[in-house]
Amino acid sequence: MTDVINPQTTSPLPGAVVTPTDNDEHGAAAPKRLGTFFWICAGWITLITLVAIFANLLPLPNPDFQNFAAPQNGAPGWGHLLGTDDLNRDIFSRLLFGSRVSLVVGFGGTAIGLILGGIPAMLSGYRRGRVDTFLSTASYAVLAFPALVAVIAIGSFWGHQLWKITLVIGLFSSPLIFRIIRASTLTYASRDFVMAAKALGASDRRILAREILPNLMPTIISFGLIAVASIIVLEGTLAFLGLSVPPPTPSWGNMLNEGAALLSGGPGQNNAWLVIFPAAAMFSLLFTLNVVADKLRSYLDVTEVKL
């Protein structure tokens, strides 16, 4: 229906189109490598994930503990590596514990999106017919609805618990995932190996799981990582607006919210570190996720899907 808009909606990374030089058929085929930079970025994501999981075991002060012995809005130093916030809490500890929210919502939301969007997409793209028409139209309809407004609205009426935020964001990311996986399924559903499997009498379930799904994996992995990044942005935006996981639970978004709120205070009242550190953490995670997704996409040769 809206075919020309789709090259953009295919990829949550705006304008991420494969450049002509990427798939140059005439040039000498360079050996495919992920490169050192990819591994540095992947290592950083792994490190953040490990820290998030094992934050309890690290020798850190309680992130919610208001230590009146520590200075208010203290500068970074040996006692408090990244300083303290306006409520005398340790910024370093809050930053490490805060990564949990981003990662849980990012990966959890993507997983929910993949289940709610991906499974119907495979069936829809494989079986076609009336169900496909209906689901495709429905996915357009939900896509037309602005996700942030929806999540703000539902959250403010339903509540801001972590699982609710994850569920709602996952739900609203599913139509985009549906479109990507459906388009990808379509390209494989009519291929010879699927015909062969059908001729051998394989069941639909077997064809979907054994023949089509493995071919979808590159798409799922590279677009899945982009989905993780965009969901983290969405949650961060919500948290910045004060509409995600409520305080005192730390998240990078609500730390930025606190830091930004202090900026309107007079001299000596504001705390630059409470802006700089969560912003840097957020940037590093999003940047490395984008790099890993981008490199994987060209490594796995996932060309832009035509919906």
């Binding site: 990044a229 935006t237 930025l256 900026l263 802006v275 912003a279 957020m282 940037f283 999003l286 940047f287």
Partner: peptide
């Protein structure tokens, strides 16, 4: 441009105000 993709308004905004 690729770097800017990792700087959504809620990250770059407070930094710019600062």
């Amino acid at each position: 441009a690729f770097g800017m993709l990792a700087l959504p308004p809620f990250v770059i905004g407070p930094i710019m105000v600062l």
